[in-house]
Structure formats: C-alpha cells, structure tokens
C-alpha cells in the first residue's frame, strides 16, 4: 500500500531542536501513538493531541493529508 502524507505541527517547547511544521510519510492507518513515539516523545509528555483541529485519542488512525498537532500541557486564560 502506498504511504500516506501527514502534516505534523509542533508547539511550545516541542519545537525546540525539532521543527514547527513538516510533512512526513507513514503506512496507511498509522496510529497517533506511533507517530508520537517515532518523533522521540514520551506519551506522558503529551498535553493535547489534535487531528484536523479536533482532539483525538492516541490510537486514532491517520489518513492521507491529515494534520496532527501536538502540544505539551500548557494553558493560560
């Protein structure tokens, strides 16, 4: 099966030593968890995981042209 392209966006200190936004290729249906671990994060570091602007569980399978946004636990108000 052809790989899928997923846009990954990183925020706050997740950007340090990595990137802001990049397209990566994965096998179809790859779970958010595998992408996160593949980037060298620990799952416990994740504050907010969004796919296409909506909160997603770690086992959410990704599709072609999805956007995965990863935030540490941060907040304001």
């Amino acid at each position: 099966m052809a790989p899928i392209t997923v846009t990954i966006k990183l925020f706050a200190h997740f950007r340090n030593g990595r990137f802001k936004e990049a397209d990566h290729q994965f096998p179809p249906g790859v779970a958010c968890r595998e992408v996160i671990l593949g980037l060298g994060f620990r799952l416990g570091e994740m504050g907010i995981v969004m796919v296409n602007g909506q909160h997603a569980p770690l086992d959410h399978p990704l599709s072609e042209r999805d956007t995965l946004a990863l935030f540490p636990l941060v907040g304001g108000g």
Binding site: F11, P72, G75, G76, G77
Partner: peptide, 10 residues
C-alpha cells in the same frame, strides 16, 4: 512550566 515559559499567549 507552561505559563512561566510562554505566558497566557501560548
């Protein structure tokens, strides 16, 4: 950590 580093503007 979050608020001290980036403020509310994060």
């Amino acid at each position: 950590q979050g608020l001290p580093t980036y403020g509310t503007n994060v």
